[in-house]
Structures are given as structure tokens and as C-alpha cells.
């Protein structure tokens, strides 16, 4: 089965990102494919490389990056949601004349069309959030 995943909530505040990660990991282990993980609303905050959770806690952004590295998963932050919330990649940094970027490894910023495409291409699109 080809899955698309939509994460609508930020890390730590809400279980959505944890559940999405555990689902994606379990699906891959069972031989399924993740077409894309799309992060929307506060979900874009999952893509910051500047998070420093306590050492005895899970590192949510790093965990996504590692999963993407191991299994070549497409992690996409919505550009409109990212701009509002200060999530910046090197291109956005230049375009909006910011003095830094903060995107974690293997995440990229792109348009909402990527979410629609996931809806069309995946056999199931699963939303994690309230």
C-alpha cells in the first residue's frame, strides 16, 4: 500500500507527530511505501534543527530526519505555514532576506500542491492531528 501522511500539529505539544512517526515506521517495516509526509499548520515546527529536548526525551525532528535518511522518505513543510511560523531553508532565507535558516536534514519546503499530489498519488492519505 502507498501511504501519504499529513501531520497537522507541532512536536512535543501534541501526540500527532509521534503517532505519525510510529505509523510511518511500522508501515515501512511491513513493506508499505510512504509517498510523502506533509507537515501543515503548526506541524511545520517538526522540521526545525534547532530543537534541544532533554537528553532522556525523544528528539522528534532528528527522528524524522533519520527515518528519511534510512528509507528515503520525502518530508515536506508547507511553505505558507512555514513562512508564518519562521521555518526557513536556505532558499527561503535568501528570498525573504533572513539572517539564518533552521530546517533540519532531509526536510524541504514546498507548496500545498505537494499535499494535493500526495492525496492523488497515495492509495491512502492519513491525517494525524485533532
Amino acid at each position: 500500500m502507498i501511504f501519504g501522511i499529513l501531520v497537522n500539529e507541532g512536536p512535543y505539544q501534541h501526540q500527532a507527530s509521534d503517532s505519525a512517526y510510529l505509523f510511518a515506521k511500522a508501515a515501512i517495516e511491513e513493506g508499505h511505501t510512504i509517498f510523502r509526509v506533509f507537515f501543515y499548520h503548526d506541524g511545520v515546527n517538526n522540521g526545525t534543527r534547532l530543537a534541544t529536548p532533554p537528553q532522556d526525551d525523544r528528539h522528534i525532528p532528528n527522528r524524522w530526519s533519520e527515518l528519511a535518511n534510512e528509507h528515503n522518505i520525502d518530508l515536506v513543510l508547507c511553505v505558507a505555514a512555514a513562512q508564518r511560523r519562521g521555518m526557513v531553508d536556505p532558499d527561503e532565507m535568501k528570498r525573504n532576506k533572513k539572517d539564518a535558516d533552521n530546517i533540519a536534514e532531509k526536510f524541504r519546503i514546498s507548496g500545498l500542491g505537494q499535499l494535493i499530489e500526495a492525496g492523488v498519488q497515495a492509495e491512502r492519505l492519513i491525517t494525524f492531528g485533532d
Binding site: 499548520h41 507548496g111 500545498l112 500542491g113 494535493i116 499530489e117 492525496g119 492523488v120
Partner: peptide
């Protein structure tokens, strides 16, 4: 949520679904 949902609808409209 409602405002950003509408943004998805507007972008999605270009995809002829």
C-alpha cells in the same frame, strides 16, 4: 485551522480534482 484549510482548498482547485 479554518483559515489554513481554505488555503488548501484554493491551491487544490488548480489540480482539477
Amino acid at each position: 485551522y479554518a483559515h489554513e484549510a481554505l488555503e488548501v482548498v484554493l491551491i487544490g482547485a488548480a489540480f482539477e480534482q
